[in-house]
């Protein structure tokens, strides 16, 4: 019996009473049922629950005693100067860590894509930092930026007269966190490197034969082909940067501070939201802050998406370009 006659047999409904299509539908939903259950139980329900909580003065302990207070949590979030200060720090972190991280990893990937010696070793060295657990990374950077015994102040003591120290974590915390993030740009680099290696060499050679210099080749051949990857990584970096709070929490903990409530200099928006929940038991207000953050992330990604048609080139357009 070959496959077709088997299918015919199943389709004729003598076999199971179900057509193959229906049977396949049932089996399909059977296979993906864990995801459907999880999607409803662990995503949809908690999210609606969080929306509900953001409208109450829930204190984290007793849901019955919480009363609905409407949108006043949201109103407070928009009026409170603390939340604006926290959002400003989050924006600073995003504006520093995203462009520098992307540019550095792209540059490293371009260099590693050239035929240089010891490529594998360089690649491994730049990738190694991403293997260090976040706690260990923050601990190391916490001691590098430490006021009393940190490496940066040790360097300073060589240049300035002794006694002049800078309290890096206290005064420039968000920049320290950005440096820490850029140190871990190895994954981005590997993604860019894979993208670069996927570009056929003939294209670049053709450009060179046509008399293009290095810059023109990059700008007109390499960059357009790389832009979908850059775009995706850009979006993911934005989402990551706007919800960054673990790193600053551990960094402040490594410097002797607290996790949920880091130093003022790195009191980013998610930290603010979480400390309202964990330290001050204001779950309603915290949930409202998290929803505001969600809306901000959504808006920023939408704006980037709208601009993408000006700088992201998809293969479809390329094909049309050659056909015309």
């Amino acid at each position: 019996m070959d496959v077709n006659s088997y299918h015919r047999m199943v389709k004729s409904k003598q076999y199971t009473g179900f057509s193959l299509e229906k049977r396949k539908t049932v089996v399909f939903y059977g296979f993906i049922s864990p995801w459907i259950l999880g999607f409803i139980g662990l995503l949809i329900i908690p999210m609606f629950f969080a929306i509900y909580i953001s409208l109450t003065n829930f204190n984290g302990f007793n849901l019955q005693s919480a009363s609905i207070i409407g949108l006043s949590n949201y109103a407070e979030a928009l009026q409170n100067p603390d939340s604006w200060k926290a959002m400003r720090l989050t924006l600073i972190y995003a504006v520093i860590s995203i462009p520098f991280g992307l540019l550095l990893s792209l540059g490293l990937a371009m260099i590693l894509n050239m035929k240089i010696k010891a490529r594998g070793i360089f690649r491994t060295i730049f990738y190694l930092p991403t293997l260090v657990p976040g706690v260990a990374t923050a601990l190391v950077f916490g001691t590098i930026f430490n006021t009393n015994s940190g490496f940066l102040n040790l360097l300073l003591s060589f240049f300035k007269q002794s006694g002049v120290t800078i309290n890096w974590l206290n005064d420039y915390g968000i920049y320290c966190a950005a440096v820490m993030a850029i140190w871990g740009c190895g994954t981005l680099m590997v993604i860019f490197l894979a993208g670069l290696q996927g570009i056929p060499e003939e294209l670049q050679e053709a450009a060179v034969i046509d008399g293009a210099n290095k810059w023109q080749t990059f700008w007109n051949v390499t960059w357009p082909l790389l832009s979908p990857i850059t775009y995706f990584q850009f979006i993911m970096s934005i989402i990551g940067a706007f919800q960054m709070y673990v790193q600053v929490g551990i960094l402040s903990q490594a410097g002797g501070g607290r996790f949920w409530e880091p130093y003022q200099s790195m009191y980013v928006f998610p930290s603010y939201a979480l400390s309202q929940m964990m330290t001050y038991q204001r779950f309603g207000y915290g949930a409202a802050l998290i929803w505001i953050l969600f809306i901000v992330i959504l808006l920023v990604t939408l704006i980037v998406q709208k601009t993408s048609k000006y700088w992201v080139y998809y293969a479809v357009d390329q094909e049309r370009g050659t056909k015309e």
């Binding site: 329900i45 999210m47 984290g60 979480l274 953050l293």
Partner: peptide, 15 residues
């Protein structure tokens, strides 16, 4: 996949 992890994680924790 594009949903910020924080938005899932914290509501889950509260629940």
């Amino acid at each position: 996949m594009m949903l910020p992890q924080l938005m899932i994680f914290i509501p889950q924790y509260i629940m």
